[in-house]
Nucleic acid binder design. Structure first.
Lengths: 215, 215, 215, 215
DNA sequence: CATGAATGAGAATTCATTCAT
DNA sequence: AATGAATGAATTCTCATTCAT
């Protein structure tokens, strides 16, 4: 038998282990994606035991969700306000420009404030429980679009709304797709983003008007 | 010199093991994607030893590429004829409609003839050596688009070609993206596809014309 | 700031798994050599899962190096003191006998203290990252010998130093070769070793003097 | 059912498959050693099926022995003439020089005529049934040396033959060791070899005389 | 909060060899 | 003499997770 006495001075002003794990895990997930990220790597980089991660998080998936949670919450609040607002006047009205600017502001805020979280969610979540997050969002957007079309038709009976459901779904996937492309491109300034959204809106508006035979 | 005469009787009614492996592997890859597909599963489903797969294919990646090879060959031949054709008259000319129909026919043929192979290539290749096949294609398309824009500007000096490179890239990714969406949707008839391509072309044409301030 | 006081009671009577693995691995490596040794065998003999070895060592090579580490450290320290000492007076001086005794003592200590580790390093390392350890040592010795010959020639201009580089290299390999033979022979007492080294030095000295035409 | 008729014209003037296998196998064994050489590689390089190797050779080991057989036969004949010859007069007699020249000629012939086979046997046989060929040879040489010492003592009672058995064994291993070093070095000309053997004999003779306290 | 030890399942891949044709 | 199909055993290694301390 022997007795070891160890004295450890620990600086408590450092990041807590939990936060350190989150920080390192974020890098690992961003570098390899959820599936190929390894808890071993993360823990060894943090300098703690693998099992310690399980004292802070239920499992790998839970750790991933934690990283993305603030974004998810914001996203949900956006969705809520978005869905509840009245937008049927979209095309016709004068406040359309205002709507565009609002959307622009929201998206740029997201991209500038949560670039890594967005990447995790949109590009690196394969294998996690959030793998189909965007698909679910697109589903919702689709259904909403259908409703919107009906409303629009009531107001403007001349418009053509004989558009294939597939195309509506495809169009619903455009914005997420744009977002993904923006996230992949690391060189974009805020001015670039403004221009891109301008172009995007111009492009899709023209497209839709053409499809719906408006004017 | 000598002459050997070999007579081979081959029973065409039962699949050879090689073909069986390919068949089963295709299902496995489609179900789980390249990365998560397991050679163990495949071999056990075929009813042979795992190592036997290696008598027929160099490795997992080789097996995957074999499944997708006919598609790749067709794709390459398309690309070649596509790139060599003169398309700068795209917008203005009368044979534009012809061009559209050609493209439509090609794509519908691909989707109808190689639905699974396309899925493998576009949706389930992550982890394989073909993971970035589509990105490489988009790269090529991008460079081609830049050139096209310059040619176009020469012919029509009034056109606006001050379009962000990002948007050009994004647009180049639209067709692959459309394709992916089509592959995911299993319910589409040939007529649906015709309509979808019509809408797609209508939509994007209007969008581009708007962006380039033509007419 | 905080102070942690940790008391560790450790029962020294039973080997930790780590140490057990090392012990069993040593036997396995000695019995089959690095390449043919199997982690399976080792783990099953220890009575743990194969993967557990990887909790204690990075990989097979790391496990092997761990076994041989104390020897390597000693070897390096020997080399350092060896290389720094002045030995150009080797033949002529009175302290040559002292030098011989020092070398004798060092080698006998190695052989008696690290017989297994030496075997691992010299006889059973093929396939590991230490496969060429001895070749590298011989290389160093060679270059050192060349320098020694030049120094010697300056002091004793009459000596013949027209000796083929190959022979110098061969002679540099003699000591390692002797060591290998000693390790293979398990019956040698310390007295035997003394005699062997005496004979070895007598033999090679006479050989060199003859080659260099001294006296 | 279907019937395939294949006509194969085969040029019989080529190397027979058997010889081709031997040729390619030699390269593979020389490149990777017996253990790491792969029949797959060999057969694929030859352009035949793996199993075909088994139509010509019993197994991997048999194939290896076949490559080395001519050398083994020569070696055995050397040994026989070597062992039967009277060499006790080695040191004292005038025909010692003749003996040296004979040995030199033999060895140089071997090295020049069977360089690859010697490499296979001395350096790359680990894992095969010939792994311990050289050890067995050294054993024989050892026993022979013992006998030689006794004969010598009878003729020259003043000579010291109190030499440790280990040293005799070690010295017996010198020549094989020299041979190995020669094989490893690819830059040696025949003149080099002459010089090396001269030096080697000079060196060892002086060594032995010193050990045995002759003159 | 932190540890280290342990697990079990699973991965791809390589290999020499066999056998019927 | 040559084939191709098939085998089974073996290899190292990675992973997320558990648990008692």
């Amino acid at each position: 038998m022997c007795i070891l006495v160890i004295l450890l001075y620990k600086n408590m002003s450092d990041l807590s282990t939990r936060e350190l794990i989150l920080k390192v895990a974020k890098d690992e997930f961003l570098a390899k994606g959820f599936r190929d990220a390894s808890l071993r790597n993360i823990s060894s980089e943090v300098g703690v035991a693998v099992s310690n991660i399980y004292n802070h998080f239920k499992n790998k998936d839970d750790l991933f969700r934690e990283l993305v949670r603030p974004l998810l919450e914001l996203w949900d609040s956006y969705m809520e306000s978005h869905f509840s607002s009245e937008e049927a006047e979209l095309f016709a009205d004068t406040d359309y420009e205002k709507y565009k600017q609002l959307m622009q502001k929201s998206l740029i805020f997201l991209v500038k404030e949560y670039p890594q979280e967005l990447k995790l969610l949109l590009l690196y979540s394969s294998g996690s429980s959030l793998e189909y997050f965007m698909e679910e969002y697109i589903d919702k957007m689709c259904m909403r679009s259908f409703k919107w079309f009906q409303d629009f038709k009531e107001k403007y009976p001349d418009a053509n709304i004989d558009i294939s459901p597939f195309m509506i779904r495809f169009q619903s996937s455009l914005l997420p797709s744009l977002l993904k492309n923006i996230l992949i491109d690391n060189s974009l300034t805020e001015a670039d983003l403004m221009k891109i959204f301008d172009e995007y809106v111009l492009f899709t508006m023209a497209g839709w008007k053409s499809l719906m035979a408006i004017r």
